[in-house]
């Protein structure tokens, strides 16, 4: 995905990538205009857009979107703050690996959104439930990828660093973490996707706040064009967050061979 070329060629490429979406939108519009389906089930693009404008002006959309983004963001943040040290510790200390390894493996098969009802039992329907469920969901990929990243640091790097007289703790910050960063970023990217999924799931299940609650509310009350507007908003937001993270990755890992990125 080269960033070069003239503005017009970049524009052409963007148009080419947008093509399939435009085709889908056209099909959608055609279906609604031809009256093939009940307008209740498939609101026309126009009415969805009107609903979106309405919500945007009323600010409800932005508040709820911000809440969802905050939940996902905080969940991801704590997942990183806990998960990276944990994964690194497991890779560097056999005792830590022996203790935490089985726990991590055991939780692997559990769909983390199933923890939401449990957390409701414990913490009620407040935002803590959502954030906690998100944290636990993001922990798993971050721990696993950090573990593999740290584990996979070529020993020749460690030997070189030792020959240069690197003290042990600097070995971690100057050598191991940078070398493991590509894997860690992959784990964070996956965790980001999970964070959105669990945040939305929790908001739909518990209906406390956020876009999930908004979607659910509109679905229940039959205002389907509003519901679609909310759904599209969060889907686009999640996509943009992913894109933003990829751009961040490309900058932070600019020293990497392009083929090795986004493993």
């Amino acid at each position: 995905m080269s960033g070069g070329g003239t503005a017009s060629s970049r524009g052409m490429r963007l148009l080419s990538k947008a093509g399939p979406f435009l085709i889908c939108l056209a099909i959608w519009q055609a279906i609604t205009m031809l009256g093939i389906t009940d307008p209740a089930f498939l609101p026309g693009l126009g009415s969805i857009w009107a609903a979106f404008r309405d919500l945007a002006v009323e600010k409800t959309l932005w508040i709820d979107l911000a809440t969802s983004l905050m939940t996902a963001g905080l969940g991801l943040l704590f997942g990183i703050l806990i998960g990276v040290p944990l994964g690194a510790a497991m890779a560097l200390s056999p005792r830590a690996d022996g203790f935490f390894g089985p726990i991590v493996k055991a939780t692997y098969s559990l769909p983390k959104s199933a923890l939401v009802p449990l957390f409701v039992l414990w913490f009620g329907v407040g935002g803590l439930t959502n954030i906690l469920a998100t944290v636990l969901t993001t922990l798993l990929p971050i721990v696993i990828y950090t573990y593999h990243g740290v584990h996979g640091v070529p020993r020749l790097f460690l030997w070189s660093a030792a020959a240069f007289g690197t003290p042990r703790w600097k070995l971690l910050t100057r050598i191991i973490l940078p070398a493991a960063l590509p894997a860690i970023f992959t784990g964070i990217r996956i965790a980001l996707g999970f964070a959105f999924i669990v945040t939305i799931a929790a908001e739909m299940i518990v209906s406390n706040h956020g876009i999930g609650k908004l979607m659910f509310f509109f679905g229940d009350s039959g205002s389907y064009n509003y519901m679609f507007a909310a759904v599209i908003t969060i889907v686009v937001a999640a996509y943009l967050a992913d894109r933003a993270f990829v751009i961040l990755t490309d900058y932070v890992l600019r020293w990497q061979e392009p083929a090795e990125r986004h493993a």
Binding site: W159, S160, A162, A163, F164, G165, A179, Q256
Partner: peptide, 20 residues
């Protein structure tokens, strides 16, 4: 007994730190 700054090493691969 262990690596030291009196003995420098150059390998065939992984000679440089790619992030620097």
């Amino acid at each position: 007994t262990k690596p030291g700054i009196d003995r420098g090493i150059v390998f065939q691969d992984y000679a440089l730190f790619p992030w620097l």
